[in-house]
Design a protein around this nucleic acid. Structure first.
Length: 977
RNA sequence: GCCGGUGUGGCGGAACUGGCAGACGCAGCGGAUUCAAAAUCCGCCGCCCCCUAAAGGCUUGCAGGUUCGAUUCCUGUCACCGGCACCA
């Protein structure tokens, strides 16, 4: 028995088994090492470099680079990476210069937290993780240009991250031209005009002084308020015990989620980015990028533009400063029966100062300020306290109370509102809770105002007339808004105003494992930039990176005292700014994880450039689209919205979890660089695509609690029980998670089937953009396909090619169709249907009855070469193996031996795509009654005649009168009786 | 609550611009081969009625509508998933 078994196995030495697949894949991957030993994989030269072919069009395809975690690749990574690999290999065959780079987003929190726990330096764990990720990606056979690889933690890279930050630090946003300009230009302008500037910033009524009369320090302080990267004050959740700032999600009931330590909300001076200055452009340019609608909608909502008016309300008796509010509904001003300011609003402090006996107010403010955003969101019950102040409604002349309440947020608008309880749900609830007046001022057709609830929406103004001010009664909301704004502007108490939900970007982190800011402070706390020529500012090695316990934030870098305490000269500050021997202290905050990923796509264009963040020629070649550079006759032009063409990366593929923040931040940096003339396109990513999430099966008890997969037994088809209890559980789809024990390790799958099968499986699961459940049971389907394809080409006993002598016309036609469909589907990123087409082709070529001559079978040498070529993007190793057996070989510029990589995509003969005769169904009343073979070129009249003459049709009509015949040539015939 | 997306066989999914619903794969069933098994190959495989077959009926979450014809367009509705969430 076992003898025979062994004998047979010996006979089939060239069967495409998992072991065979693994062996041939590893052989092909080993052959990607350059003969000179200096590199690995396919290198794409830049313009001007040896081997560059200027006659080819370019294609820049970008994957979102991974954060190299200790856990290794997740099955979600190779999903997007396989998709881009297929597309890039296809583009290579189609004759493109293809830029497909890979790198590592390597600064970040997990490595630092792991370091705090284990004492192993983050650099050590991160580099180890990178090595593992690189090994895994190479094992998939992805055609990356590894010569362009870098990590964001490389000083050669973050040197330029710091440089870009300095660019923002040294720039301001000029609203008159809506773009960034060097701050030196602003300085020159202020000096030229000898402009009056405020010199005691922050005060409500600043003192103004002419530029020439100001000290250098006063001038600098004024310029500092314009910088795109500026020092601003932000309220943060500070946990003294943990020594760090916490995200809102990490604070529960005023205590840290981890450890339960008290958390203080305190204002902290942090580096900020003035992203709000770019709100309009970030919004407008979304119209010109080829992005998923969902993503554009998300960004639009995130920016949250709203139009309205700013209105100034005087405080009764001048007891405090006038109160300015923002409203989108100035037309409802007659219904403003009270005012609300945020607890942090300056007016509240004035009210407390005015009446210190009002302890209730002071207590409320303290309580509200310490309440975390999470708590505030969890309980939307209205709380608040009267300030004792009254405002005058300018429209009605009424004296209305000013309250403070935490439902009004300091961070939006002016931190103050006019409350119109009749027409705003929140104001209505508050008015009910505190027994405040409610006055209807809008009549909405179909929703009468009953006093039981607020009526939101547009309608006609009512109760909105005052002989001594204005009347808008009867006006529709849109006109009423215009009238009120016009009146406000005439009175000088209000103006049209646009507001955004988007806030400025907090860019400081009290962390060790990030890019240091190239900034130092003098003894007075004034900041000075390090000269760009002195970069990189290298992150100092620390032995102890645990957080510092303190009442005031102390980032871990503060521990590096020798590093932090230095002199201006040693730090590299321009001597013109500060004398070299001045003692200075370095900034100890670091940049957030986003920093490195904001511009990595640019660095890939020329990763080794030592004198530029990206070399200009490379940037123009890879980032400017062909169409656009052709239109500009070789010269890069300014952005032209009329062409709806933004240039940028030709295709960017990654998860939708980065649809808002990463993609918004990168656009923002890119626009600064564009304004300053460092890049030639207004947008970084011309086309964006999100692959769907790969989920997994999980099991749920009747009470909806989840059971780890390893504690479940399948008792029969689709029936599962919890092993320990025998209780029935239902199979559901959930995210892969360690706790559910349903995480798939790509290494295991490759060992079981090979990388080619893994690649095919993930692409065959369904549409790339859809979220799909991993089902190990299904993998065998595509594995069998590769086995059949292999068997079609190769004798499993001898390893010799199996070739047909003559071309079978039916197979030849099908091959043309398959080549055509696969190309079409790859361009549409519809890989599942492309694979289905190849499966159909192999099945047909395998089955004698699908051949014109059943004694023949198999493919000719030429047909097999073409089939292997279209399979190559999907399953490159097995395709190359067949290619090599066919004697197809070549070398790359580096002398690396390749097979199909140098082939052209096979040509399609259009005449082979059409049939002479087509079958058409004939329907009567929409039901199919007959099938008709008609010549493909037959016109509607001829088809109608043939259909009506068909015996089955005549029988089905049964003598009834034909009322109408609809003929769609090549599709169907429908007869109405 | 608001915004967006998705609902098609036992399962993953296919179907062009409104034109044969269920390609392809998995699972299942039957057969060939084999001493036997694996592997491979061939056939069947949406549901109902029916001994079986023929014939027929039903079917793209549900209820309507437009149309000669709807998975596709429109209205309403339910379920699930994702995002935002007191943004004035």
């Amino acid at each position: 028995m076992s003898v025979q078994h062994t004998q047979e196995a010996n006979e089939l030495q060239h069967r495409y088994s998992a072991a065979y697949a693994n062996a041939l894949e590893e052989r092909w991957q080993a052959s990607l090492a350059w003969p000179d030993g200096k590199g690995y994989g396919f290198r794409q030269p830049n313009p001007g470099e040896p081997g560059f072919d200027a006659s080819k069009p370019k294609f820049y395809c970008l994957d979102m680079f991974p954060y190299p975690s200790g856990a290794g690749l997740h099955v979600g990574h190779p999903e997007g990476y396989t998709a881009t690999d297929i597309l890039c290999r296809y583009k290579r065959l189609k004759g493109f210069n293809v830029l497909h780079p890979m790198g590592w987003d390597a600064f970040g929190l997990p490595a630092e937290q792991y370091a705090i726990q284990t004492g192993v330096h983050p650099e050590v764990t991160t580099k180890k993780a990178i090595d593992n990720f690189r090994r895994q990606l190479r094992r998939f056979g992805f055609m990356y240009d590894w010569s362009r690889e870098f990590a964001t933690i490389d000083p050669d890279y973050y040197k330029w991250t710091q440089w870009i930050w300095l660019q923002a630090y040294s720039s301001w946003f000029d609203p008159s031209v809506k773009k960034a300009r060097p701050i030196a230009e602003l300085e020159a302008k202020l000096a030229r005009e000898n402009a009056a500037i405020p010199v005691d910033g922050g005060a409500t009524k600043p003192t103004m002084k002419n530029w020439s009369a100001c000290t250098k320090r006063e001038q600098q302080a004024h310029l500092d308020t314009f910088r795109l990267a500026y020092l601003g004050t932000q309220t943060v959740n500070w946990c003294p015990k943990l020594g760090t700032v916490l995200a809102n999600e990490e604070v529960i009931d005023g205590r840290s989620e981890r450890g339960g330590f008290p958390v203080l909300r305190m204002p902290l001076k942090q580096w900020m980015f003035r992203i709000t200055a770019y709100a309009d452009r970030l919004l407008e340019d979304l119209a010109f990028v080829d992005w998923p609608d969902m993503t554009r909608t998300l960004q639009t909502e995130w920016i949250g533009r709203s139009e309205g008016a700013e209105i100034r309300f005087a405080i009764d008796g001048g007891a405090a400063d006038a109160l300015t509010v923002f409203t989108t509904r100035p037309d409802t001003i007659f219904g403003a029966t009270y005012m609300v300011v945020a607890p942090e609003h300056a007016l509240v402090a004035q009210a407390i100062a005015r009446d210190p006996s009002n302890t209730k107010l002071a207590e409320y403010v303290v309580w509200a300020k310490n309440r975390s955003d999470i708590d505030r969101q969890a309980s939307k019950e209205k709380t608040g306290c009267a300030t004792g102040l009254f405002a005058i409604n300018p429209a009605t002349g009424a004296r209305i109370p000013v309250w403070t309440a935490d439902y009004v947020l300091m961070g939006y608008g002016t931190g103050a509102i006019m409350a119109v309880p009749a027409h705003d749900e929140r104001d209505f609830e508050f008015a009910k809770a505190f027994h405040l007046a409610i006055q209807q001022v809008v009549e909405i057709a179909g929703t009468p105002f009953t006093g039981e609830a607020a009526t939101a929406g547009e309608g006609r103004a009512v109760n909105s007339a005052n002989p001594s001010t204005l009347s808008i009664d009867g006006l529709a909301t849109a006109e009423a808004k215009q009238s009120v704004i016009a009146w406000l502007e005439k009175q000088g108490i209000g103006t049209r105003r646009v507001n955004y939900r988007l806030r400025d970007w907090l860019f400081s982190r009290q962390r060790y494992w990030g890019e240091p800011f190239p900034i130092v402070y003098d003894a007075d706390g004034n900041h000075y930039p390090i000269s760009p020529s002195q970069l990189p500012l290298v992150l100092p090695p620390l032995a102890d990176y645990s957080p510092i316990e303190s009442d005031t934030p102390q980032p871990p870098l503060a521990k590096a005292r020798e590093w932090t305490h230095t002199t201006a000269g040693a730090a590299g500050v321009d001597p013109a700014l500060l004398a070299p021997n001045t003692p200075v202290v370095r900034e100890t905050n670091t940049m957030p994880g986003w920093a490195g990923s904001c511009w990595y796509y640019l660095r890939y264009c020329s990763p080794k450039d030592g004198s530029h963040f990206v070399s200009p020629e490379a940037e123009r070649y890879w980032m400017l689209s062909r169409k656009k550079s052709a239109a500009a006759a070789g010269a890069p032009t300014a952005y032209d919205p009329a062409t709806c063409h933004t240039g940028g990366v030709d295709l960017y593929v990654g998860g939708s979890e980065h649809a808002v923040l990463h993609c918004l931040y990168a656009r923002f940096w890119h626009k600064i660089l564009f304004d300053l003339g460092h890049v030639s396109t207004p947008e970084p990513f011309g086309k964006l695509f999100h692959q769907g999430m790969i989920t997994s099966y999980a099991f749920q008890r009747a009470d909806k609690s989840l059971v780890p997969t390893d504690q479940v037994t399948e008792v029969s088809e689709g029936e599962f029980v919890e092993t320990a209890t025998g209780q029935k559980v239902t199979q559901i789809v959930a995210k892969m998670s360690k706790s559910l024990k349903n995480v798939i390790n790509p290494d295991d799958v490759i060992a079981d089937y090979g990388a080619d099968t893994f690649r095919l499986y993930e692409m065959y699961m369904g549409p790339l953009e859809a979220s799909k459940p991993w089902n190990t049971r299904d993998i065998v389907g595509v594995f069998r396909f590769l086995q059949r394809a292999w068997r079609l080409a190769v004798d499993e006993k001898t390893g010799e090619l199996l070739l047909a002598a003559n071309t079978d016309e039916k197979i030849e036609k099908l091959l043309h169709r398959t080549i055509h469909k696969v190309a079409d589907d790859i361009e549409k990123l519809s890989f599942n249907t492309a694979i289905a087409a190849m499966i159909e082709f192999v099945n047909a070529a395998t089955r004698p009855q699908s051949l014109t001559d059943p004694t023949q079978g198999g493919l000719t040498r030429d047909q097999l070469a073409r089939f292997a070529t279209i399979l190559w993007p999907f399953a490159p190793h097995v395709a190359d193996e067949i290619g090599a057996k066919l004697g197809i070989s070549g070398t790359t510029h580096e002398g690396m031996r390749v097979s199909l990589a140098n082939q052209p995509w096979p040509a399609v003969d259009p005449s082979k795509l059409v049939d002479d005769e087509v079958e058409m169904p004939v329907q009567i009343q929409g039901k199919i009654k007959a099938r008709l073979m008609v010549p493909a070129k037959a016109d509607a009249a001829a088809i109608e005649a043939l259909a009506l003459a068909h015996a089955d049709v005549v029988a089905a009509i049964a003598g009834r009168a034909v009322k109408k015949v609809v003929v769609v040539p090549g599709r169907m015939v429908n007869i109405v009786v």
